[in-house]
Design a protein around this nucleic acid. Structure first.
Lengths: 356, 356
DNA sequence: AGTGGTTACTGTATCGATTCAGAACCTTCG
DNA sequence: CGAAGGTTCTGAATCGATACAGTAACCACT
């Protein structure tokens, strides 16, 4: 009544070998707890019986460990695997999680879908990574209610109960604008990504922007103007409908059409900068002679672009690694912490002094 | 002795409200099994007590459902999130799995790492997707030993116990080569991806290739030659070190240098074709006048490339959707099946008759 | 009043493993 | 020879929820 059919469990194997269930468990999880001879006999019997190893769910229940970390995305799925910023980040996360022998569960919450109807609310994970989710997104509440450790990347600010990894976005933006100003540019445009409001010219106050990173960066661009004794309100701010080059090109086209006087453009990302470069070409503007462009991120494509993009480098792969490390730390019982990664202005060929 | 500290479980809530544990469970999982008044009272009490909802591990143990599907990758992590073929496929998988409310767990097995030291051997999943894994990879044995449903994408052939989705690679390749031959090309090169052997000219017999898809496609290219009354051995076959444009460019450079007589090139993927186009430019060859290039896949970039790439379209997103559907079917107790997706020759501007 | 049919809830067996305090046995040493 | 110390293995409690058969109450209808 044990070597019977159906499900083969630890007990089945134990009965077959004539040892206790605990010993079989040890054979799998603590080889040092039994003689190697017995261990071999057990493993052999298990193989004969077709035992598939300890059941994952039962183990999780008993140990309280799922062996998996969740990754919350609210962007359209299309971007998760398309956006180079995201994929770079993912690489870092995947590397670390592979090293730690944990699985990595994707938790996409498409726009307009109730997070409660999503894997977010049910999936088993030891902790979660929140990647660049806009403030106040409903999935955040669902996630927090699950009571597991959380690490936030970039945004939103979830307070001291969660760990955080990001960069000094304001400083990065300031560096970018400062670079243009130093080159002599005075008529500067700003191309932001999706910020939670209508794409096009930004008319209202910047506090309307629900994306913290965008708010910070805009603040940084303005800081640079003020510091140079210029009026921050002279910045022409346009927002795009996404973070891909196509959206960037569309927004930049509209921007350049309305403001042909601009000689410099700071962009929210390299993706948008590439789109802007395409738009410039379409307008018969040469980069950098007619228009200087600064990106953000320093994705691989930035260096490969023609002309190579001046940009603000942020360590995206490291961001992923650090985020995963922070989460593993929390899962292990550590305290939440905040980490700010270094950034750097990388000067390439897409910027030059304005034409005299 | 129930409303006590520590862990709050179904029982805690049940005691507080004065109902049985089963009723609380129903409040969460079968709202139709109790009056809405009671249900509300239960949910309220749960909120008060800070109950986080049914424990995922316990539920999994009881129901036997993990609510998650695993995705096995053996490619370098770098490619998982970078290669457009892969990301397109992932989009399809993610869409379907989101619809089915299942999580999606990535199981990367980096080269040189013992799969047994990986999440593959422990993670809880209802079934697994195997994406383009080379035949005989050790992770496959680990995965099979777990005894859960498996769906194989593209390769390897794991027999009738698993479902399979792929395309007729041989036919696709034949179409590509046939197109060039019809245009009048006679000196044709083949640029394969990583095939398990040294990059560079392929000298040995094609049976040395451990990647089934590459073997099939090479067979298809040769078929087209034979059918046209040409000698398949006239094909100049080169292999590259990866599936990115850079690897393609390097391989194509070497190929064109050794074989300047070529007028047409069929490539294993659009990624490689793009690399080959760059190589052609470097060699001062105009595409398609000096060199016709055919890709494979029809990723978005193929149409956007200058000149737009002639290629063999395969429905990558659908592949992901179908793979996930097949897996859900197996998990639901269905029988394994094989599905072959349609392919199509897409003629664009990268091919033309050879210069007279 | 009796019958049959719903609705609303309860009791309990069960999922499959891990863990830890000890039992049993074997060495070793004073 | 007996105590101390090490190994090797066992027994039983436990993790938290679900599912199913069953009870109780209530309603409607002849």
């Amino acid at each position: 009544m044990a070597t019977v059919s159906g499900h083969i469990t630890l007990q089945t194997v134990a009965d077959r070998v004539g040892v206790s269930r605990a010993t079989v468990s040890n054979a799998y999880n603590r080889p040092d707890q039994l003689s190697s001879g017995l261990r071999e006999r057990i493993l052999e019997a298990a193989a004969e019986l077709g035992y598939r190893g300890p059941d994952a769910a039962a183990r999780s229940l008993r140990t309280g460990q799922m062996g998996t970390i969740g990754l919350l995305f609210t962007e359209d799925l299309r971007f998760v695997f398309t956006d180079p910023d995201t994929t770079e980040f993912m690489r870092g996360v995947a590397e670390t999680s592979a090293l730690a022998k944990t699985g990595l569960t994707l938790l996409p919450v498409p726009a307009g879908v109730d997070p409660a109807d999503t894997a977010v609310s049910t999936v088993a994970a030891d902790g979660h990574l929140v990647f660049s989710v806009a403030e106040g997104h409903p999935a955040l509440d669902v996630l927090r209610s699950r009571g597991r450790p959380i690490v936030v990347v970039d945004e939103p600010d979830l307070g001291v109960t969660t760990s955080f990894v990001g960069i000094d976005d304001r400083c990065g933006a300031r560096l970018a604008a400062h670079h243009l100003i130093t080159l002599g540019h005075r008529r500067i445009g700003v191309l932001l990504g999706r910020v939670g409001i209508e794409p096009g010219p930004l008319t209202g106050p910047s506090t309307e922007i629900t994306v913290r990173v965008a708010r910070e960066r805009l603040g940084g661009y303005r800081d640079a103007m003020s510091e140079a004794g210029l009026d921050p309100d002279d910045l022409v701010v346009w927002t795009s409908d996404g973070n891909d080059p196509d959206a960037g090109r569309a927004a930049a086209l509209s921007l350049l059409e309305h403001h042909p006087e601009l000689t410099g453009l700071v962009c929210f990302s390299d993706q948008l900068a590439i789109g802007a470069a395409q738009a410039a070409e379409r307008c018969n503007l040469t980069v950098p002679d007619d228009l200087s462009i600064v990106g953000f991120d320093d994705v691989p494509r930035a260096a490969a672009w023609e002309p190579p993009l001046t940009t603000i480098r942020q360590p995206l792969v490291d961001k992923g690694r650090v985020a995963a490390d922070l989460l593993l730390e929390l899962i292990g019982g550590g305290q939440p912490r905040r980490i700010e990664l270094p950034i750097e202005l990388v000067i390439r060929a897409s910027t030059a002094p304005p034409r005299a």
